[in-house]
Write a protein that binds this DNA or RNA. Structure first.
Lengths: 349, 349
DNA sequence: TTGAAAGCGCTAACAT
DNA sequence: ATGTTAGCGCTTTCAA
């Protein structure tokens, strides 16, 4: 059974006027007699007329919907960013179509093809951790599809980007660990090719450097799948546990990695922060009620989503090709909790 | 700048044939010369032709997209259910448009209007906690839009439904608390009008009854906004703390309520489970690393999402009106952790 | 085996 | 002030 709506034609027939009169009346055109307008409006309301957006889309060659590609909505940063995206999009009459890569490059490719073939007007992208090659994005961009990257961005494509100040967030968190007496700080992070990985790594390294702590490459562990594959984070962690001297703190570069490290530490009975401190990027609401409460770097996810969307809609609705691209950067916030505070008694200094 | 795709017309011009020939060749029609077919296919590939789904939609009067209405995607149950929904929908070439009510009836109304006007083919709905009146759904259903309710359902509309066995989950959790020596078990739950609230309440009451524990109405606190408004849960909690005798356990009937109670108990320094045990419905991955680890009733969210979608697509693609409606019910799982286990020393029995 | 033409719902240029 | 018509991309009779 098909749901069939009232069309402009039905109204025209009902009223004995032409479809164009109805169309113009509904759009409140100046060239329509006020009385006719009123008559049409009333009839439309009475018959519960709803314009068919598909016909409109076909005509205007746009669908008033935008796509969003993220790694997974269960990620606390992305679910909040999506709230921001939806709020900005709906305000301006746009639909949002969400798709998840689960950090997989293959999925990213197929999703991109899927979305492109669904006539979306533009795309918000946060790149999967597995992805190294940007050609699939470049091809679409070259064909004129408006693109805005957020959070995990690429330099390869010349368009708007929205990011958190990952360097700052990472620098602050690492400095905080150092300030609490930790010296052998490991860094568990996403795949090397990701923009956020590189920036966070830089912040981490700079903090070590500024405090005259030598950086050791083996203290940095990359998770090619962003902790999406459980064994991967386990391996990274095992690698760290084989190091001598043992790290005394872990700074994690992503939502799943932060909570993942917490789970592993807990499951192995390693005391936090006595034996190993933990801090990391996360937007989880539960950070303060875990055991121990987690020190986290929070990104303004909602605002970032909103801004990315506004920039995308600007691109979509711009009459002329946009030449100037913005790089918006948002400050992060460090929320300090017990997981990274060295207890007074065991302080080594 | 507009992204403009290759059309069937471009192919026809390129090859010097008619658009109908191209169309038929692409659809592999029997009445087209194999050589022509091959030629068209090659040209389509070469020019990177992608059929315009909007034109198709207009023609077929369907959009190959379904809407999903949930309270919020940051909810651990819904984010996983949505994964299931997307997996089933994408498999069959459907788009998913997600919208969030934030538990607000008003938002539910406007979202419904928005989605209905965007020519979706069907709708998956989990009702907002504020909603009491089902007329907005009934009106759409009456107009022939396929609807499937999941998780928070209504009896008022005759269609497929997908739920967890809320009674069972609630019964088991409450019985578990009783088995651990708790007798004064409070229940913090969603708005009274919600289906899940009623079923979970029944399970809770039945468990009390089966163990000869008198039910006290004041031990049940309803949150009309599902804990979405912070003060609401605070109030509910305060009400419980004024009771004498004081409850010795809380059983929470929803994701946000469970973690919300944890936060409140923690912030007030009330020891869990010594002073107050806690258990509740939640699909959070962090339940086992909170302090204390939480006893939770888990729903098979992914499977529920998949099933709801399959039922909806069945409805959408059915040639004749569907008369027989299914009520799918999924078993829940009780994961016991420390938050509900009475320590041996303080055991009263 | 192929082409011409109509039509899905809507808008807008062009009549009148 | 209103009507006629063409066209957005595609499929599908109907003709040839």
């Amino acid at each position: 059974m098909r749901y069939s709506a009232v069309t402009i034609k039905d109204l025209a027939r009902e009223l004995g006027v032409s479809t164009s009169t109805v169309s113009r009346a509904l759009r409140d055109s100046y060239e329509i007699n006020p009385e006719t307008k009123k008559m049409v409006m009333e009839c439309a309301k009475r018959m519960n007329y709803q314009p068919n957006p598909i016909a409109l889309s076909l005509k205007e060659r746009k669908s008033r919907s935008i796509g969003v590609i993220v790694s997974e909505i269960a990620n606390s940063f992305f679910s909040k960013a999506i709230n921001g995206i939806e709020s900005a999009a709906h305000e301006r009459g746009y639909n949002v179509i969400i798709a998840q890569t689960q950090e997989s490059y293959r999925k990213e490719l197929s999703i991109l093809e899927f979305l492109a073939s669904r006539s979306i007007d533009g795309l918000l992208i946060s790149i999967a951790t597995e992805t190294r090659n940007m050609e699939h994005f470049a091809a679409l961009h070259a064909r004129g599809l408006p693109l805005v990257f957020f959070d995990r961005i690429t330099e390869d494509i010349n368009t708007h980007t929205v990011v958190a100040d990952n360097f700052q967030g990472s620098y602050e968190a690492t400095s905080h660990l150092i300030g609490n007496g930790y010296r052998r700080i490991a860094h568990v992070t996403n795949s090397k090719n990701l923009s956020i990985t590189q920036e966070r790594l830089k912040g981490y390294r700079q903090a070590l450097k500024d405090h005259q702590i030598p950086a050791d490459k083996s203290y940095v562990q990359y998770c090619h799948h962003g902790g999406m594959i459980h064994s991967e984070l386990e391996n990274a962690f095992n690698n760290l546990m084989e190091l001598r001297p043992l790290p005394d703190a872990i700074f994690a570069g992503g939502d799943k990695l932060t909570t993942g490290c917490l789970k592993i530490l807990r499951s192995r009975g390693i005391k936090i922060p006595e034996e190993m401190a933990l801090a990391g990027f996360s937007n989880s609401d539960l950070a303060e009620v875990t055991e121990p409460p987690l020190t986290v770097v929070k990104q303004p996810a909602f605002e970032m989503g909103r801004t990315a969307t506004e920039l995308l809609l600007e691109l979509i609705e711009s009459k002329r090709p946009v030449e100037e691209f913005e790089k918006r950067k948002f400050a992060t916030r460090l929320l300090v909790h017990r997981s990274s505070i060295r207890p007074a008694l065991t302080s080594i200094g």
